[in-house]
Nucleic acid binder design. Structure first.
Length: 862
RNA sequence: GCGGGUGUGGCGGAACUGGUAGACGCGCCAGACUCAAAAUCUGGUUCCCUUACGGGAGUGGGGGUUCGAUUCCCUCCACCCGCACCA
């Protein structure tokens, strides 16, 4: 009699050691097998693994183990996204150096990874905060400079007043910093930019090719890139006394067809013309200052009134020199989009309509629905407050009259181009990626500023530019900027005294190419060897949270293209398949005073009431929300794994919900998973390991035959489910199969042994430790992790007799058992014999009988 | 406001190209074992009527197509997510 309970504490570490000793997860660069690159978004080394990590890496591990068994040469690496602000905050709070803090966290987290039993190739581990890593991205940046893909310019930026640094557009969410959560301010700074807009069209079009990406993410990227077709046209600006300004006003529009409905022009408060006018006009200067003070937060925009300031200038209509419209500075015109100037057509743009009504500007209808009475429609529109933005035909528009919107647009653009007043253009919402950050714990930007030569690249021979260790965090601001000596250097070009760039790269810089570094992680002279990158890339299956849909995932797509154009590698798309997993949540609890309570501060009664342990007061139970410290609903993975083991944690995570959906962590769920492991354990102990002589399926031994058939069915079902990320369904099929084995008491010993062995093999990617133990107990050769994936025999799925559903008028009335190849007449006759069918036919006639072979018999009566 | 997604028992969720709705699990109920508990095992568990046999209703609401709809079409509702003064 062996142990009644499965002892994971002994079993799991033993197999982890066996895998490590045999080095089974190392990915050789040369192999006969086809490659398969599985990657999960690498973690920031916070020091603590959380449940979100466990879910992410478990999902990736299932992919990796399944593909390995299917005969692929699997690359499944792990590393650390090690630069970032939390390290500096730790330095500030505890006086520990960011490097020391980060490296200790990496050590701690690596230790926490061990008990999970993941199939990782640790020989490829990388850490982005080490010069061995970031020196290569300094080189890449210099190559981008040479290829015109990086530039420096002064511009308005998003300034996070808490993090004391600039943020990229993608890092501003609802007008707030993505990490600090405080409203960003606008500042004008000199910044380094990467020319992501150069690839806007390609990044957009190639989304169509990313068929193995979630539609949601593809859509988000499409919207973010925001392509719109329209025209740019130049308006001549006249001063109040009628003299034209030297510079014409460049305006972007998507509706050139509505030009004859123009009633004003408006420019952004930050438009050069506005700034210039404000120099002589304090009222305008105050207005501009007012606009800039306004936050960009959601509420601020919502509440903000559309305000304009009449400059007194007028703009000459492009198609009619006699026609002049007023020029406003308006708070709703963005300097960041288009040209920072618009023409207003109140009849066909709601915002322009609101503006026109407020400032008493004319409303001219120039598009009417095809079937409407044009004059009547125009009258109502021009008297009302609603703009018409639908499709229709141009009216009161001279040469465009009668044309539908699209045709009118083309005609307008033709005319504008013929008149040399502008041209048809494609405008993107996407902005260039600002990568300068005024922080210490990041990769130094390898540039030297010289008074005579300007910004000079650091020569290749002087790379890497490493971070100084002796920095202080006793005051706000960038420690690099106030370091006494670090920035002092000589100009590589003229040799005079010069200063280093003290900004560092955005942390998304490191994560934009790490997947390529894993292909050749030890390369000292290059970021990676081109041949190796070409061999392993693209990543076949990438897995991570949807929160990076337009951050990391877009930057990486751009970066890979830029690297390609600089000759680093050959692929343009880094991630062939993407899977975005849901969050791990937990119920939340609040006391009567509103404070959050953790699960161990409350007590649940059988009747469903919850009270606070300290004083028995009522506890409000909230819905499941993403685990967070502030809501006190976190569950520590280390504690769970210590109590139930990695396999139980993995099983629960995989079985509870489909992987793309949010899941709720519950005690009952993990308990249930743990019970199942013990069930597997007992199942295994009932098997005679020596019964290896599985006979051919014999109809005289029905119990054995059906068990073997069930095994083949399970192989087919589990294989399909694993192949398309239906892991919860895979678990259901595995459990169903174990129920079948448990019930098959009359099956022969060889049949039972075969079934349990098959079960172990199918469950291996999900529960690698206990299945390895089962394999070994059944006398399997070598390690289960090295075994090929089982194949089902299609002949085994064919049944002799089948059960057909019988309906009367579409309602289920019973079932019949017939031979699998029974003809329609037989099925019909059998169905009509059913008493429940007869009862329904009382006094009625059979109109017809529909027999769908193998599916259903439907008797239509009436 | 624009765009997208989701809606199935007490709960998480199954259901291939329209064909036995509720697989699998959680929870719950009953029983076995036990002095007792835990663990385990057996049976039950969509709702309503019925001792049972059986019948009726049922996949967010309403309508449609079909012999047959969770699945296809129209419409409405609720919730979630993304973007948001984008010219």
């Amino acid at each position: 009699m062996s142990d009644a309970r499965y002892n994971f504490k002994e079993v799991e570490p033993r197999w982890q050691k066996a895998w490590a000793d045999a080095d089974v997860f190392a990915a050789p660069d040369t192999s006969d097998k086809p490659k398969y690159y599985v990657l999960e978004m690498f973690p920031y080394p916070s020091g603590r693994l959380h449940m979100g990590h466990v879910r992410n890496y478990t999902l990736g591990d299932v992919v990796a183990r399944f593909r390995k068994a299917q005969g692929f040469n699997v690359l499944h690496p792990m590393g650390w996204d090690a630069f970032g602000l939390p390290a500096e905050n730790a330095a500030l709070e505890r006086g520990v150096h960011p490097g020391t803090w980060t490296r200790q966290n990496i050590k701690d987290m690596r230790a926490q990874f061990g008990p999970l039993g993941l199939s990782l190739d640790w020989s490829r581990e990388i850490s982005t905060c080490e010069p061995e890593y970031y020196r290569h991205e300094q080189k890449m940046f210099l190559d981008f400079l040479k290829h015109g893909l990086a530039y420096r310019k002064e511009s308005w930026v998003n300034w996070d007043p808490v993090e004391n640094t600039v943020l990229a557009n993608e890092q501003v969410v609802d007008g707030k910093g993505w990490r600090s959560g405080v409203p960003v301010e606008r500042r004008k700074l000199n910044q380094w930019f990467l020319k992501i807009t150069q690839y806007a069209d390609d990044l957009l079009q190639a989304i169509d090719v990313l068929e193995r990406w979630p539609d949601k993410v593809r859509l988000m990227q499409r919207n973010w890139i925001g392509r719109s077709e329209g025209a740019r046209l130049q308006w001549t600006i006249l001063t109040p006394d009628g003299t034209p300004l030297k510079d014409k006003l460049d305006v972007f529009t998507t509706r050139p067809d509505t030009l004859f409905g123009a009633s004003f022009c408006a420019i952004s408060p930050n438009h050069p013309l506005a700034v210039q006018l404000a120099e002589q006009n304090t009222e305008l200067a105050d207005f501009i200052a007012d606009c800039n003070r306004l936050g960009t937060s959601e509420e601020a925009i919502e509440k903000a009134e559309k305000k304009g300031f009449d400059t007194g200038l007028t703009a000459q209509h492009p198609f009619d020199a006699e026609w002049e419209v007023p020029v406003y500075v308006a708070n709703f015109v963005l300097m960041d989009y288009g040209t920072g100037a618009i023409f207003g057509c109140p009849g066909h743009d709601q915002r322009d309509m609101d503006f026109a009504r407020k400032y008493g500007l004319p409303v001219i209808c120039v598009v009417a629905p095809k079937d409407a009475d044009a004059a009547d429609f125009a009258k109502r529109l021009e008297e009302g407050d609603e703009a018409f933005t639908g499709d229709g035909v141009a009216i009161k528009s001279e040469f465009m009259d009668g044309l539908e919107v699209d045709a009118a647009k083309r005609a307008a653009i033709e005319k504008i181009e013929a008149n040399k007043q502008g041209e048809g253009v494609v405008q993107f919402r996407l902005r260039d990626w600002g990568v300068s950050r005024q922080r210490y714990w990041g990769c130094p930007i390898p540039v030297i500023h010289c008074d005579s030569c300007g910004a000079v690249p650091v020569p290749d021979a002087d790379l890497p530019v490493t971070l100084p260790e002796d920095v202080t965090f006793d005051q706000p601001g960038n420690p690099l900027a106030r370091h006494p000596t670090w920035k002092k250097t000589k100009c590589p070009s003229c040799g005079k005294d010069a200063e280093r760039e003290t900004d560092t790269f955005d942390t998304f810089f490191e994560s934009s190419w790490y997947f390529a570094r894993f292909c050749d992680p030890k390369n000292e002279s290059l970021g990676f060897d081109k041949a190796l990158a070409d061999q392993w890339l693209p990543v076949d299956q990438y897995i991570g949270g949807v929160e990076h849909a337009v951050l990391h995932l877009l930057y990486s797509r751009f970066f890979t293209r830029a690297l390609k154009d600089c000759g680093y590698l050959s692929v343009a798309e880094p991630f062939d398949g993407l899977f975005t997993q849901g969050m791990v949540g937990h119920e939340t609890y609040r006391g009567e005073d509103g404070t959050w309570l953790s699960p161990d501060e409350i007590k649940r009664f059988d009747d469903g009431r919850y009270v606070r342990l300290t004083d028995d007061t009522h506890v409000h139970v909230g819905r499941s929300e993403k685990m967070s410290k502030s809501k006190k609903n976190t569950v520590d993975p280390a504690h769970i794994i210590g109590t139930y083991g990695a396999d139980a944690a993995r099983l629960f995570m995989l079985s509870d919900s489909p992987p793309e959906r949010d899941m709720e962590w519950t005690d009952a769920g993990i308990e249930g998973a743990w019970r199942y492991l013990n069930r597997l354990w007992r199942l295994m102990q009932d098997v005679d390991a020596s019964a290896t002589d599985l006979p051919a399926v014999d109809s005289h031994d029905e119990p054995s035959a059906s068990l073997v058939k069930a095994a083949h069915k399970a192989i087919a079902q589990v294989t399909d489910a694993l192949a398309d990320f239906r892991y919860n369904a895979a678990v259901a099929h595995i459990r169903e199969f174990s129920n079948t084995i448990g019930d098959a008491e009359k099956a022969s010993a060889p049949a039972r042994r075969f079934a349990v062995e098959t079960l172990a093999r199918l469950a291996n990617p999900l529960m690698p430790h206990i299945t390895e133990e089962m394999w070994s107990a059944l006398g399997g050769n070598g390690l289960l992790v090295d075994q090929p994936w089982p194949k089902h025999d299609p002949a085994m799925l064919v049944e002799d007799t089948i059960t057909l559903a019988v309906q009367v008028n579409g309602k289920m009335r019973g079932t019949i058992d017939v031979a699998a190849d029974a003809d329609k007449d037989t099925c019909e006759a059998e169905a009509l014999k059913l008493p429940t069918v007869q009862a329904q036919m009382d006094g009625k006639q059979v109109r017809k009988v529909i027999v769908v072979p193998g599916k259903i018999v439907n008797v239509v009566v009436g």
